[in-house]
């Protein structure tokens, strides 16, 4: 119940109200969110493909990841900010949306996958940084990362098609129906 209250407070906030009522805010924020998302996906994809040996292993992995993940984090930050603004506009609807919940799970899974890769697999990078195929754990991390980010983007688009006409949302129990 406390969670529902918090979500309701977010929706009732001044920022939520502004996002709902400003004619320009939502289009600009949504477009920026798409821009940020495509940038996260595109940059992560290059790093992940390198783990899978695509197109080859001639450029050092650490070099590729260092130069690209900077862009990824900037774009991800932008996506979080714009995503939060969109969430604030209609928080009560998003939290009960299945696609939204699954998207958050997919983001979490992508984060865990990355943490395992950075924390464990990457320690031995010296042995496979350049010229040789990365070990199985690294390839697996790359493949999963691609699958998870594709999933995140697909679920994100799915939210737009499923967030309306939700009749299962519980109604306020205090509504007066007899007069």
């Amino acid at each position: 119940m406390e969670f529902a209250g918090l979500v309701n407070d977010i929706q009732a906030s001044a920022i939520g109200e502004w996002m709902r009522s400003s004619l320009k805010a939502m289009p600009v924020v949504e477009a920026t969110h798409v821009l940020a998302a495509t940038m996260v996906f595109g940059t992560v994809l290059i790093v992940d493909l390198r783990l899978l040996g695509i197109p080859n292993a001639t450029r050092a992995f650490t070099r590729i990841s260092d130069e690209l993940l900077r862009l990824t984090w900037w774009a991800f930050g932008l996506a979080v900010v714009t995503g939060s603004l969109m969430f604030a506009a209609n928080a009560n609807t998003y939290v009960i949306n299945t696609a939204f919940r699954l998207k958050m799970l997919a983001l979490l899974a992508a984060g865990i996958n990355m943490a395992i890769f950075q924390g464990a697999t990457l320690r031995g990078v010296g042995g496979w940084d350049v010229g040789v195929a990365p070990p199985r754990a690294a390839r697996l991390a790359g493949l999963l990362s691609i699958l998870l980010w594709v999933t995140v983007i697909m679920l994100a688009r799915w939210i737009g098609f499923t967030k309306g006409y939700n009749f299962v949302v519980p109604d306020d129990p205090n509504i007066k129906f007899d007069f």
Binding site: L102, A109, T121, W158, F161
Partner: peptide, 30 residues
């Protein structure tokens, strides 16, 4: 590492299944 790998695979499969499960829901009014 093996366990971590299994977790990763399982989590991804669960998500894909989740996507498949929500798919029919959109068909009816959008």
């Amino acid at each position: 590492k093996k366990k971590a790998g299994l977790f990763q695979v399982a989590a991804s499969l669960a998500l894909v299944a989740g996507v498949a499960a929500t798919a029919p829901a959109i068909a009816h009014h959008s």
